[in-house]
Design a protein around this nucleic acid. Structure first.
Lengths: 204, 204
DNA sequence: GTCTATAGGTTGATAGAC
DNA sequence: GTCTATCAACCTATAGAC
């Protein structure tokens, strides 16, 4: 492995990702980022024009590969994937991604931030995913209405986002809670829970 | 109904709640708050000492009544509540609260903000609730391990938080998604989903 | 309790030299 | 492309008059 001397633009993206994930978009200043990246302050505006545009770039760089992976996993499960395969394709690329420079914490922020400009990105990047996955689920659960499927996907996304953002404090919140298991175990628990939720009889 | 002339302290709390919910804690300045509340800037520091202490007060004012309501609903379901009753007691007080000055949006922020000082409040206000509800669930689902119950409560809290934070954009995210139903309908959907998730056989 | 005034520091963004 | 220097605006917090 050759240590790549990352160029300025990449260094800024890496530093911004790390700090946005740790402290949020508002609380992270451009000066924090340039200090972390060890580049000049003016370089941010030269390469990204504005802070908001930098946020756009940081988010898109991580989300797009994840979404491609989701679609690829769904494809590779064949023309008639079962519910568990679908849910794993939906969640594994998010939960299992490499946390090189804080990608997981960043993703937790994106899911959890209701601010308008993040919401806009949410729409941009997730609409096609929701469309594709809700269609696949509809094929395995034809008795569910499309509306119900979308709601349950909404619930499932919420559970997944919460796992990203807060799982690390389960042990300290609950006395006697065991060590955090590895990601595969968490994913398995989540898939079991969500699959049962999807299979519930509609209307209660 | 007599229109109460709220005192300065209450006006600040109301304005802060509204703006924290709308824009987040970092993006809301004390000047934003005092302008909204139509009080003097210095009044904030007089009544609350610091911004962080104001945030504490704003959050505690809304969370504590909700948690009392949760415990009361669980009590009133009798000594052996079924799973649905437990889940309704857990979620209804959060989802159905009056959104007078932005309480629901504030609650969404609290659940969704992974910052340390919010996490600390999370522990302060929710540990007892989790303890009580996980115990009640354990009585109805004795075959589940305590660890599994805590994980599934974690997932359920995530789904609920996501409903608070993002449900309003389901219609615009999905072409053909119908109008948002009333809160009771959303709650019923969520309870159906979560109850099935809890009843899943452990270990898959 | 409420106000004005201000201290002391940070912010995003840019102009202009190299 | 990268730097220094700087602007104008904003921030939290406090001192001190009333």
């Amino acid at each position: 492995m050759i240590a790549k001397p990352a160029d300025t633009k990449t260094r800024i993206l890496d530093a911004a990702e790390k700090l946005f994930g740790k402290s949020g978009f508002d609380a992270t200043s451009l000066r924090d980022i340039t200090a972390e990246a060890d580049v000049n302050l003016a370089a941010v505006n030269y390469h990204f024009q504005s802070k908001e545009s930098l946020i756009d770039s940081v988010i898109a760089r991580r989300i797009e590969p994840v979404n491609l992976k989701r679609l690829a996993m769904l494809e590779s499960a064949g023309p008639n994937p079962n519910l568990e395969q679908i849910l794993i394709a939906f969640m594994a690329p998010v939960l299992n991604q490499q946390d090189l420079s804080g990608a997981i914490e960043l993703m937790a922020r994106i899911f959890a931030t209701p601010d308008m400009f993040v919401t806009r990105l949410f729409k941009t990047h997730f609409t096609a995913i929701v469309e594709r996955f809700s269609e696949a689920i509809g094929k395995t659960l034809p008795e569910l209405s499309r509306t119900e499927i979308l709601w349950r996907l909404h619930f499932t996304g919420g559970a997944m986002a919460h796992v990203l953002a807060r799982s690390h404090l389960l042990p300290q919140m609950m006395p006697g809670f065991p060590e955090l298991p590895d990601r595969q175990t968490v994913l398995a628990r989540l898939v079991t829970y969500a699959a049962a939720g999807f299979r519930a009889t509609e209307g209660f």
